[in-house]
Simulated assay, not measured.
Amino acid sequence: MMRILLFLATNLAVLVIASITLRLLGVDRFTGQNYGSLLIFCAVFGFAGSLISLFISKWMAKMSTGTEIITQPRTRHEQWLLQTVEQLSRDAGIKMPEVGIFPAYEANAFATGWNKNDALVAVSQGLLERFSPDEVKAVLAHEIGHVANGDMVTLALIQGVVNTFVMFFARIFGNFVDRVILKNEEGPGIGYFIATIFAELVLGILASIIVMWFSRKREFKADEAGANLAGTNAMIGALQRLRAEQGVPVQMPDSLTAFGINGGLKHGLAGLLMTHPPLEDRIEALRRRG
């Protein structure tokens, strides 16, 4: 539950900061009067946060996970890792990404970067130690699939769209409460600000559900790409190993969870905010694929 709250808090913080900036710039005078101008301003600030996060994603990933980039392999395992990623990248038709290892006991991996020819793929130390070479290759293929499919850009754009409309409709709602219900004709009052913040909270949660739905769909696509690159049986085997380790807490930063191989497990309403589908569903989808 804490991870869910932190995820929501991150998205809502972007919206709140954008809201304050809009007010300081006097943009709120457009609320309820010029919807076109309001939408443009909301789009500018709605996309700003997601695009900035996208462009600095590699730097943030390295800093937040402690990932060590392999520039010169020191062991045969690192040499194998570089060669495997190079082969998978070539087969996927993308430029070789940076390759790194991050210190974590959990079996996990992630891919990030602002475009498919300037990406980073990293695996945890725990995954390298406990998974077989075929399973590690399948995990790498899954992450290469994320990169080749352009999932980082896709989710950044989706986040920008939902941010825009959360800000837009929250201000329309705030203006409606202030002018129609409270009969305030002297400009934005306390009712407007309270109603806007309330609407941003509610719409922000709904927006997160939409983004997570897209994230889960992209995960199935990455599994298919991994199966194409490393073999269906190897991809299924890697997911089965992940399922066997579901008791190990996922400690990946929330900004990277959507592009990891393992997104953890949530139940009930929290399942709507899962970045990944249940592993059983992913395995069954690969089995049906044949």
Rank of each mutant, 00 (worst) to 15 (best):
G113N: 09
V250W: 12
A225I: 06
L12F: 14
Q83D: 01
A285T: 05
L279F: 03
V123C: 15
F173Q: 00
I94Q: 07
F198R: 04
D178A: 01
R130G: 02
F259I: 04
I236P: 00
A119G: 10
H146N: 08
T21P: 11
G226S: 02
A199S: 14
F169P: 11
F169L: 01
V162E: 13
F45K: 12
Q251L: 04
T65N: 12
W213K: 14
H142Y: 10
P103E: 04
G271S: 01
F131N: 00
T154F: 09
G160Q: 02
L269S: 12
E135P: 00
V211D: 01
F165W: 13
E135H: 03
E106P: 07
I197E: 06
E245S: 09
K58V: 08
E143K: 14
N11T: 03
G247C: 02
S255G: 05
V161Y: 09
E129Q: 15
I69S: 09
Q125H: 06
F169D: 12
G26H: 06
L229C: 03
G174D: 06
M2P: 12
R171T: 03
P97V: 01
V136C: 15
E98A: 12
F7C: 11
T31A: 09
T112N: 02
Q72H: 15
L269V: 06
P277D: 01
L203W: 15
T65K: 10
N11K: 10
L272F: 06
F7A: 13
H142S: 05
E219S: 12
S37M: 04
N228F: 03
F168Y: 03
V211K: 12
I40L: 11
F102D: 02
T84F: 03
F55G: 14
N163G: 14
M235H: 14
L201G: 07
A43S: 15
I101T: 05
V153S: 08
S215K: 03
L82K: 15
F214D: 08
A13C: 06
L5Q: 07
G49W: 05
S89D: 07
R289L: 06
V14Q: 07
E68K: 01
L5N: 13
G49C: 04
F168D: 01
S57L: 13
G189E: 03
L25C: 06
G260T: 13
A170M: 11
E135L: 05
V248H: 10
L127C: 04
T31C: 02
A230P: 14
N175V: 09
I20A: 15
E185A: 06
L157F: 13
P188G: 15
I94C: 04
I69Y: 11
K266C: 14
K95I: 00
F169V: 10
Q83K: 00
N262F: 10
R3K: 04
R218D: 06
S89F: 13
I205P: 15
L157T: 03
N11A: 11
F193A: 03
S37P: 06
L120R: 07
G247H: 12
S64C: 05
A9H: 04
V147Y: 15
T164A: 03
A141Q: 14
K62D: 05
A104H: 07
D28Q: 02
A107C: 09
L182G: 15
R29W: 13
M274P: 00
A258T: 01
A13P: 05
N184T: 05
T275G: 10
V16N: 12
G268N: 10
R23K: 10
L24W: 14
G100L: 07
A156Q: 01
A43M: 09
N262W: 05
